[in-house]
Design a protein around this nucleic acid. Structure first.
Lengths: 389, 389
DNA sequence: TTGAAAGCGCTAACAG
DNA sequence: CTGTTAGCGCTTTCAA
C-alpha cells in the first residue's frame, strides 16, 4: 500500500494536466482524427421496424481491400490476420502493415458466418443487484477476454419467461457456448439449450443434474454445514430470515439443508420468516426487527438467506443495542467483504464466487478446444467462523 | 412486504417439489427433448488456432427450410419473421407456424451481415468490483433488452491498453452502438470510436467534451457541492481518504472539486491520503486508521473517495470507539444502499447510477431510430445529508 | 403482397 | 506457402 505524505496528493504530470483540462473543459475536445473518414450524422435510412440499415456510408475497409493493398489474395490476407504461421513471415508482415494503414477492423460476423469459430459466449444471470453475480461475471469475463472471447449478457430478473426469451436471443448470435445461472428453467429453456448443441455451463449450483455441465457448490450442503456448526456452538432456538425465496432456488436449498440438518439432530427451526422482494441490507435490517417483534420467545440465533441480509440484521442490532453474539447470534451466506469488515466479523459461508466464474470459463474453453471436462465441478464452500455466532 | 407466519415457510407446491427433487437429486435429469437433434460430442474438427470449426453437424434449421415448409420464398419468410406487416396475415401465420415447428432460431450474424440492423451494443466498464457499475449495467441491460438489443460486455480494469483492445474487439462484432465508462481513453481509442461512425455514449462523467454523447454527472461539481455543504456545517480541519486515484479520473475530479471549493472559501485540505489498489470497505477501514495515526492534528472531517471507503471508515470508528459525527465526521460518494442502512446513515452524494444506465440506453435507442438527442445529458446528483457529518 | 437476383465479408476446401 | 472457387444465412435492391 503506497501512502503519500499528508497534505499532498501524488499525481504524475499527466494526471495533473487532465484535471487542469477538466477545469478548462473546452480544450478537452478530441483532436485525433488521422483517418479521412468523417463522423457524420445524416439521418439513416430505416427498415420496416424503423431501425437504421447498414448503409454504404457506414462501410469500413474490408479484408479484400487489405489484400489488394498488400498485393496478395484475400485468403492469404485472411490467414495472415489470423496468425497460425501458415503464411510466410514477410507476407504476413506486409498484410498486417496494410491492415494497420487502412485501420482495418475485422468483421467477425462475416468470419463466424463463413465457418470460423464464434468467440462470443452467452451469459445469463438472474440479477446484478448484489455483488454475488457481479463477482462471478468479473471472473468469467476476465478469463474469456484473455482467451479472446466476449460475453454477451442477459439478466433474467429471476423470471423464467424472460430467461427463456434471453436464451433464444443469445442463441441467435450463434455463440460458442452459454453460461447460465438458472433462475428456474422452463422445459422450453432446457429444450432450447439441448437443441443448440453447444457447450452449456450451469453455474452456482451443483445439486441438480445439469443439462450439460455445472460449476458451483451444493447449497443444500452449505445449509447443512452451517446448521451443524451452529448446533456445535450450542445454539438452541434457531430462526431463519430470508428474501423472496420462491424465486431464488439456491437460497431455498440452503434453507432446506439447514432445516433438514437441524431435524436430524433433534432440533427444529423455531421461526422462519421470508420477505417479498430481492435481498438487501435494508430488508435484512427491517426484517430482523420484525422477526424479533413477532417472536413468542426470542431466538438465540438467526440464519439469514445471505450476507446482505445478515449485514442488515447486524445494523439493526447495533442500532437497537442488541449485543452480538451475546444477546443474539447471526449467520449469513456468501462471505462478502462487507461482512468481514464489520466491527464484529460475520459468521458465514464463503461461496467462492470468483472461482465459479473462472472455473466456468475454464470448462468452456476446454470444451472449445475439443476437451471433455468433468460434467460437474464443485468449487466447494468454506465456513467462516467470524465472531457473530 | 408479505410476511409469513413464523415457524412456517410459505411455498407453492412446485417449490416444494423442486426441493424434494433436489434432495433426491437423480430424478432431476432433463427429460425434455422433443426434437430429433441429439446433443452429441464428437470431438470437433479444429482450425489453425485449435478452435472447433462450425461443422455441418452443428447446423440448425435455416430460413430457407422454414420458407420451404411454409411454401413461400425465402424473402417472404424473412419478412414474415421480422414482422412489419409487409406480408399477408395468413402467409405470416403459416411461416411462423413452420418456424415453430422446425425450432427455427434466426441467425442474426447472417441477418446483420446482409445489411440488417445489428442489435448488439458494446459495453465497456472499468470494473464490476463495487456495485456502482453493476447498477449502471443493470439499468442499461434492462432497457436494451426490452428494445431487443443485447449488451456485449468488456471490463477494462481501469487499464487504457485493455480498454483500447476491448474497443477494437467489440467493434469487430459491428454493434449498433457503444456505451463506455472510460478509464482513460488513449488517442487510439478515441480514433477507433470516431472512425467506427456509430453512436457512442460515454457514461458517468459530463465534465469533458465527449467524442459523441455523454451521460452522467459532473464529478467536479459533486466534490464542490460536498465541500460547500460541509463548510456550511462548520467543519474546519478537512482530510481526504481515497483509493488509487491516478486510474480513477472521476474520483480525482471529485477531489479537485472538493479541494478547489475549500480554497475558494479560504480553507484547505489539511490531509490527503491515497492508497494503492481499488476501493473497498477494508481499504477504507484500514486507511482511516492509518490516516488518523499519521495526523499531526486530527481532522474533524474525512471525505472519502466513495461510499465503500466511507463505510469502511465508519466500521473503523465503531471498532475504535470513535463517535461519529461527534469525534469525527465522515462523508462519502455514491449514495449506496449500504451507507444509508448504517445505524448512523452516511452523509454522501447520490450519483443516480441506474438513471445513467437507462438514460444511456435512451440516448442510444433514440439515435438508432434516427433521432439526434442532446450531446450531453447530466442526470444530476443529490447531496444526502445523512447523519455522519 | 410476393418473388428473383445479387451480395454482405469472410473462411473452408481443395488445388497448385 | 499461396490461390481459386464456393458458399455461410440472411437481407437489400429491383421487379412483378
Amino acid at each position: 500500500m503506497s501512502i503519500l505524505p499528508s497534505g499532498k496528493l501524488a499525481l504524475n504530470d499527466s494526471a495533473v494536466n487532465r484535471v487542469g483540462s477538466m477545469l478548462k473543459s473546452d480544450d478537452h475536445k478530441p483532436k485525433i482524427c488521422d483517418s479521412p473518414v468523417i463522423f457524420t450524422h445524416d439521418a439513416p435510412t430505416m427498415d420496416e421496424n424503423n431501425i437504421p440499415k447498414n448503409t454504404a456510408s457506414n462501410r469500413r475497409p474490408t479484408l479484400s481491400q487489405v489484400a489488394a493493398a498488400a498485393g496478395v489474395s484475400e485468403i492469404t490476407a485472411s490467414r495472415a490476420m489470423r496468425g497460425g504461421g501458415l503464411v510466410a513471415k514477410a507476407t504476413a508482415d506486409r498484410v498486417q502493415a496494410a491492415a494497420r494503414e487502412l485501420n482495418y477492423v475485422p468483421n467477425r460476423l462475416a468470419g463466424t458466418l463463413a465457418g470460423g469459430a464464434s468467440r462470443q459466449v452467452g451469459v445469463i444471470l438472474p440479477s446484478l443487484s448484489n455483488s454475488v453475480f457481479a463477482d462471478v461475471l468479473k471472473g468469467l469475463e476476465d478469463r474469456l477476454e484473455e482467451a479472446g472471447y466476449q460475453p454477451v449478457l442477459g439478466i433474467s430478473n429471476y423470471d423464467p419467461t424472460r430467461e427463456e426469451r434471453l436464451i433464444e436471443n443469445l442463441l441467435s448470435w450463434r455463440p460458442a457456448g452459454i453460461v447460465i445461472a438458472p433462475a428456474d428453467m422452463t422445459a422450453a429453456s432446457r429444450a432450447l439449450l439441448l437443441r443448440a448443441g453447444l457447450p452449456v455451463v450451469e453455474i452456482m449450483d451443483v445439486d441438480a443434474t445439469p443439462t450439460d455441465m455445472a460449476v458451483g457448490i451444493s447449497h443444500l450442503s452449505a445449509g447443512r454445514a452451517m446448521a451443524h456448526y451452529l448446533v456445535g456452538r450450542g445454539y438452541e432456538r434457531f430462526a431463519y430470515l430470508g428474501h423472496s425465496i420462491d424465486s431464488d432456488l439456491r437460497a431455498l436449498a440452503r434453507l432446506e439443508g439447514f432445516r433438514g440438518a437441524l431435524g436430524e439432530v433433534g432440533r427444529e427451526l423455531a421461526q422462519c420468516l421470508t420477505l417479498a422482494g430481492p435481498s438487501s441490507v435494508n430488508l435484512g435490517r427491517e426484517g430482523l426487527a420484525r422477526l424479533l417483534a413477532e417472536a413468542e420467545q426470542p431466538p438465540d440465533l438467526v440464519y439469514f438467506s445471505n450476507d446482505d441480509m445478515a449485514v442488515g440484521g447486524m445494523f439493526h442490532c447495533m442500532a437497537a443495542g442488541i449485543s452480538v453474539p451475546g444477546d443474539l447470534a447471526l449467520a449469513g451466506f456468501n462471505g462478502l467483504e462487507i461482512g468481514q469488515a464489520l466491527p464484529v466479523p460475520l459468521t458465514t459461508t464463503a461461496s467462492n464466487r470468483a472461482a465459479i466464474g473462472t472455473e466456468a470459463a475454464r470448462q468452456l474453453l476446454q470444451r472449445f478446444k475439443g476437451g471433455m471436462p468433468e460434467k460437474i465441478s464443485d468449487v466447494g464452500f468454506r465456513l467462516i467462523p467470524g465472531q457473530t455466532a
